[in-house]
Amino acid sequence: MDLIKEINDKYLALEAEVDQKLEKVQAEELKLEQQNEKLAETSTTAVPRVLSYEEALLRNTNTLKALEIAKARLRSRSTYSPVEKLLQKALQNYRRELESLEEVGDKREEKGNPHEEEDNLYDLVMQNVIEAKKQQTTDL
């Protein structure tokens, strides 16, 4: 019987140690939960950090640079006009047509009929204008 009593005492002692360790773990878990709650409360009600003079100066300089860049981008976008591009295309087409007319006119002068080309010049210019308008409407 003494043997059984010794075994029971031994296991009771071990059980008491396990219970004490379990209580410590539960107490630490409770502390951790409370700390997490405090951190959550302080993070939502965080006080804004006061910057030093140098930090504020650096922040303000960076803000001004960013604003200047944005201003330049807006300025460049506002000055671009698709009408200018269309006018450039029309001008190029007109010049090409004039060059081709000059070549045709030179050939006709050689044949002896230059006045007919001058009469058709107005019609060709108007035709170029109409084509440019058509391109403008298709590009948009």
Rank of each mutant, 00 (worst) to 15 (best):
Lys24Thr: 09
Arg75Gly: 02
Asn93Asp: 04
Tyr122Pro: 01
Thr137Ile: 07
Lys107Arg: 14
Lys134Ile: 07
Leu124Asp: 00
Gln135Leu: 06
Ile130Gly: 01
Leu98Pro: 01
Ser43Val: 09
Thr61Gln: 10
Val25Asp: 13
Pro82Val: 00
Lys85Gly: 07
Ile130Asp: 04
Arg49Leu: 11
Lys85Glu: 07
Lys21Thr: 05
Thr45Cys: 00
Leu58Ala: 07
Gln88Leu: 11
Val125Asp: 00
Thr44Val: 06
Arg108Ile: 04
Leu101Asn: 05
Val104Ala: 12
Leu101Met: 11
Asn60Thr: 13
Ala16Lys: 15
Ser81Tyr: 01
Glu41Phe: 02
Ile7Asn: 09
Gln26Asn: 12
Val50Arg: 09
Ala40Leu: 08
Leu32Tyr: 15
Leu140Met: 14
Val47Ile: 13
Gln88Ala: 13
Tyr80Phe: 15
Val129Phe: 10
Pro48Cys: 01
Gln136Ala: 11
Glu99Trp: 12
Ala56Ser: 06
Ser43Asp: 09
Glu29Ile: 12
Gln136Cys: 06
Val104Asp: 09
Ala27Cys: 04
Tyr53Ala: 03
Glu23Thr: 08
Pro82Arg: 00
Asp119Gln: 15
Gln26Glu: 15
Leu57Val: 02
Lys24Ala: 07
Asn62Ile: 10
Val104Thr: 10
Lys21Ile: 09
Gln35Lys: 08
Glu29Gln: 15
Val125Glu: 00
Gln88Arg: 02
Val18Ser: 08
Ile7Leu: 07
Lys65Tyr: 15
Gln34Gly: 01
Thr138Arg: 02
Val25Thr: 13
Pro82Phe: 01
Lys5Leu: 15
Arg49Val: 14
Ala72Trp: 04
Gln34Val: 03
Glu15Asp: 14
Ala40Gly: 09
Thr138Asn: 03
Leu39Asn: 15
Met126Tyr: 11
Asn93Leu: 04
Lys89Ala: 02
Thr63Pro: 00
Ala132Leu: 08
Glu99Phe: 07
Ala56Tyr: 09
Leu39Ala: 10
Asn128Ser: 04
Glu55Val: 07
Ala66Thr: 10
Glu23Asn: 14
Ala72Lys: 05
Lys85Arg: 08
Gln34Met: 05
Arg77Gln: 11
Glu116Thr: 07
Thr45Gly: 00
Leu32His: 15
Asn93Ala: 03
Glu37Trp: 11
Gln136Lys: 01
Leu86Met: 10
Lys133Gln: 03
Tyr122Lys: 06
Leu87Ile: 02
Arg96Ala: 04
Glu103Ala: 09
Glu109Asn: 06
Val18Asp: 04
Asn128Val: 07
Asn62Thr: 05
Asp2Gly: 06
Ala56Met: 09
Ala56Phe: 13
Glu54Leu: 10
Lys107Thr: 13
Tyr53Cys: 00
Thr44Ser: 08
Asp2Ser: 10
Thr42Ala: 11
Glu110Leu: 09
Ala66Met: 10
Met1Arg: 08
Leu74Phe: 08
Glu15His: 13
Leu22Phe: 06
Gln26His: 13
Thr42Tyr: 05
Ile4Val: 14
Lys31Met: 05
Leu98Lys: 03
Leu51Arg: 06
Glu118Arg: 13
Tyr94His: 02
Ser81Ala: 03
Lys10Gly: 08
Lys10Arg: 14
Arg95Phe: 06
Ile69Arg: 06
Val104Arg: 11
Asn36Gln: 11
Pro48Arg: 09
Val50Gly: 01
Val129Ala: 03
Val129Ile: 12
Ser43Phe: 05
Gln26Cys: 11
Glu102Ala: 12
Leu140Val: 08
Asn36Phe: 08
Leu124Thr: 01
Leu91Lys: 00
Ala16His: 15
Leu57Ser: 03
